[in-house]
């Protein structure tokens, strides 16, 4: 019976009917002397150059390129370990807004960077574009639905996997479909027809790549760089007049635990060395 009490306490907090039960509780739990936290001497941060960890939040589409940049940065800065958290930019933005301690944030779109700027969460009050990307249609290696052209995506009964509209790539994909619907060759209902074939809205591009690669879907839309990183997939390129240029901004964060290193990392990504790695992974420069 006794083990029920904590649960009852919890219950009492929510269920108004149990309000009477709250009052006797303090008798069972008398006032607690404050823990001896004050007696613990506050340890001042020592100046010894301890090995530092730089935390970088980066869009999932940057997984390959930033992995390599991280290694190069570590080589140039002995004692520094770069830790990455790759996820949909919208996930990372939310985490930063909820107080996650990161040094650098690299987003796949401005929609997830701009709010951080207005909320004063980025250092020096600005972000910089460091790369651009384009979108592409990917098909499983065996192409089970026999998709040959972009028009085929509107064929009823297909199973398409996109990113959720909150994910940058998902947002870009929907923009592209809107652009295509304005072209008479595709027809005004092209976007509606294609979206009717969507069976899942994933939370980042890498999930789409994995599921298409497994053959679970007939097609997906991801970044050109994702398709390059998964060479066994078939891809259909999207013409430039419909495609959307994804601009990737990067910034050091206002609450970065290592502000100097954060700035150095951003500078490295923008440097000739960093840009060469980005190019190697299929990204285009932000300012051609």
């Amino acid at each position: 019976m006794k083990r029920v009490i904590p649960l009852l306490l919890l219950f009492a907090l929510f269920v108004s009917a149990c309000e009477t039960a709250v009052t006797p509780a303090p008798t069972a739990v008398p006032t607690i002397p404050a823990p001896a936290a004050t007696s613990v001497p506050t340890t001042a941060p020592t100046s010894t150059p301890a090995p530092t960890t730089l935390t970088v939040f980066a869009a999932a589409s940057l997984t390959g390129a930033f992995g390599e940049i991280g290694k190069a940065f570590e080589a140039a800065h002995p004692g520094v370990t770069v830790k990455f958290s790759f996820a949909g930019s919208q996930v990372l933005r939310t985490q930063i807004e909820q107080g996650a301690l990161a040094d650098v944030f690299a987003s796949a779109d401005h929609k997830n960077m701009d709010p951080l700027v207005t909320e004063n969460l980025v250092a020096t009050g600005a972000d910089q574009d460091f790369a651009t990307n384009l979108l592409i249609v990917i098909l499983p290696p065996k192409n089970p639905a026999n998709i040959q052209t972009l028009q085929d995506l509107a064929k009823p009964g297909l199973k398409l996997i996109f990113e959720d509209a909150s994910v940058p790539a998902g947002n870009y994909t929907r923009q592209i479909l809107t652009n295509m619907s304005k072209d008479p060759t595709y027809g005004t209902d092209f976007s509606t027809k294609v979206l009717a074939n969507v069976v899942s809205n994933e939370t980042d591009v890498k999930q789409v790549v994995a599921k298409v690669d497994q053959g679970e879907a007939d097609a997906g839309v991801v970044y050109v760089t994702d398709a390059l990183a998964a060479p066994d997939l078939i891809s259909i390129s999207i013409p430039a007049n419909f495609n959307v240029i994804a601009r990737y901004p990067i910034t050091a964060l206002a609450k970065a635990p290592n502000p100097d290193l954060a700035a150095a990392f951003v500078a490295y990504v923008l440097s000739a060395d960093g840009q060469a790695i980005m190019k190697k992974w299929g990204f285009s420069p932000a300012n051609p």
Partner: peptide
Amino acid sequence: MQRLFRQRRTSQSPGWVFILPSLVLIGLI
């Protein structure tokens, strides 16, 4: 529920060694 708490009061009060860790968990949840 009233009955439960009354029973609890008459029984021997547990020491701080029990109450403090319990409070941590109650707070955590």
